[in-house]
Write a protein that binds this DNA or RNA. Structure first.
Length: 506
RNA sequence: GGCGGAUUAAUGUAGUGGCCUAGCAUGCAUGCCUCUCACGCAUGAAACUCGGGUUCAAAUCCCGGAUCCGCUACCA
């Protein structure tokens, strides 16, 4: 089983809707693993369930990874020598392998209709289609060969089921959980192929494709662990055990609060995205928010996700993708489900925002400002952004931190007034106006010593003067260095706002 | 119900029998800085699911209970 083949892993989503953030993490781990080992990452679209196909989902998946910087070496949207990479385009291939199984006695044909199966499940407690019960079904094991041929010739729909041998222990050597053994008695004769749409089910398609595409490691969600024994059996039935990939089942992402795994609804309810990109559902018309549109930096999302269920064992949290790949190892993946921590996601974004240069941030902010009707000169915006960048988590937060640069306060924060606006404040502000008026070089560095001297000479309380002034200018006792603010505002606007404040605040 | 998996502070985790008086990060609280808020810095509260065993020694190994998660489809 262990060999020296080049590492090849794949991410194989179903195009049934927007890509869940848990799927994003699975893909990321595959990407990191491939990068770490200098191998390949493939993108395969598993659209074997024609009834669940959602238009636009495939494009969404590709765009999501493009945004996140997860690059595929092969697959849908990239090409490669092992295509096609869309399972619906591989019908002929699967048909061939179904026949192999049929011919070597590891599978059989079954004609039972969904209704008949439903009845069996209702009539017999814990019914499952397996070695004990298949004699009750309408299948090629209970019917004559001619009968089967006749039915097929008549166009009757059928499925092909795996013929699982009973009472055998099958052990999965999982790279995350160690050996997991289950008995084949609990496996049912899984449907591998359905003639109705001439498509295999996940299990068959998955094994055939992984084999044909030279996959060496299957890194997927924990929900696949119970069917891993079936997959091992399939490798055996095909005689591919010597190149069977190694398995690694990843823990699930759980709800931030309460029980269960993270769902779309949690995001809506708690106010954070569970999808990488904004998604408009073509069927329901519902809209789901995305990380990208919510102002997250792709590097932050990658960093955050990488550490949700895995860690490099170091005493720090901030890593570049390259560092992540260098450090990545499957045996540091945790075994238990990870609760989604939105606060931590925000913190990561804050860290990455802070790392951006003032210029970059200004450019990201400009479109938002423009939508509000403001288009300041770039160097002014750069200056403004530099004053407040440490206090935001998202680019959009910039507005609430800088709105006063563009709009005079329409009201004054009550708490600030109560705490800082004293009886003497109106007179103080009037004096302030007079001093400001006499300053021609209206620069922060020039203004500050003049005002501070004035405060000191008169033995005023700095807090009272400055906060009265601050509240007059921006409407509340908050914000960056006061003299920097009024430099941007300019003398005229500063004096105007102060005058208004003296009149309006009583 | 059956089968499998999991269980360290509020959250993510470190820990692979003695170095654990259980580390780190987020969040929270307090203090410092300071004209305010934030940043930053410092400090603090806060955890080994429970019960048995094995051992000189257990968060770490074994058994059992509890809880949670997954699977149990002609879905992936």
């Amino acid at each position: 089983m262990s060999d020296n083949r080049r590492v090849r892993v794949r991410f194989a989503p179903s195009p049934t809707g927007p890509l869940h953030i848990g799927g994003v993490r699975t893909a990321l781990y595959n990407y990191l693993f491939a990068k770490k080992h200098g191998g390949d990452l493939l993108l395969r679209i598993e659209d074997t369930d024609s009834t669940r196909f959602v238009p636009g989902a495939e494009e969404y998946i590709i765009e999501s990874f493009k945004w996140l910087g997860v690059k595929f070496d092969e697959g849908v949207g990239v090409g490669g020598e092992n295509g096609p990479y869309r399972q619906s385009e591989r019908r002929d291939i699967y048909r061939k392998y179904v026949d192999i199984l049929l011919n070597n006695g590891n599978a059989y044909i079954a004609f039972d209709t969904p209704e008949e199966l439903e009845k069996l499940r209702n009539d017999i407690p814990n019914f499952q289609y397996d070695a004990k019960t298949r004699s009750m079904g309408k299948n090629s094991l209970t019917m004559s060969e001619d009968e089967v041929k006749a039915k097929i010739a008549a166009g009757e729909k059928y499925v092909v089921r795996a013929k699982i041998q009973p009472d055998e222990d099958i052990t999965v050597h999982d790279m995350v959980r160690g050996d997991v053994t289950i008995n084949s008695n609990i496996l049912d004769d899984k449907v591998l192929y359905k003639s109705a749409d001439d498509l295999p089910t996940y299990h068959l398609a998955n094994i055939v494709d992984d084999h044909l595409m030279g996959i060496t490691h299957v890194i997927r969600g924990e929900e696949w662990l119970p069917s891993a024994p079936l997959h091992i059996l399939l490798y055996r039935y095909f005689g591919w055990e010597d190149t069977m990939p190694r398995f690694a089942h990843l823990p699930l992402l759980l709800k931030p609060v309460g029980n269960g795994k993270l769902s779309k609804r949690d995001g809506d309810k708690l106010g954070f995205p569970v999808f990488p990109l904004l998604w408009n559902d073509p069927k329901s018309g519902e809209t789901s928010s995305g990380y990208r549109e919510s102002g997250y930096m792709p590097e932050a999302v990658v960093n955050f996700l990488a550490l949700l269920g895995w860690n490099p064992g170091l005493d720090r949290d901030l890593f570049t993708v390259d560092e992540l790949a260098e450090l990545f190892s499957l045996d540091h993946v945790s075994k238990s489900g990870a609760r989604f921590d939105y606060e931590k996601a925000k913190w990561f974004n804050h860290e990455y925002i802070t790392k951006k240069s003032d210029e970059e941030l200004a450019d990201m902010y400009a479109p938002l400002l423009k939508s509000k009707g403001y288009e300041p000169a770039r160097e002014v915006l750069v200056k403004i952004v530099s004053m407040v960048k440490t206090r935001i988590s998202f680019v959009a937060d910039l507005w609430q931190e800088t709105n006063f640069f563009f709009e005079a306060p329409t009201e004054y924060d009550e708490k600030s007034l109560k705490k800082h606006w004293k009886e003497e404040s109106p007179k103080l502000m009037a004096d302030m106006i007079e001093i400001l008026n006499g300053i021609d070089d209206f620069k922060s560095q020039t203004i500050e010593p003049i005002i501070m001297d004035w405060i000191a000479k008169n033995e005023y309380k700095t807090g009272v003067v400055m906060n009265s002034f601050r509240t007059s200018i921006i409407g509340a006792a908050r914000g960056p260095h006061m003299f920097d603010i009024i430099e941007i505002l300019g003398k005229e606007e500063t004096i105007k706002r102060t005058k208004v404040a003296i009149e309006k605040i009583k």
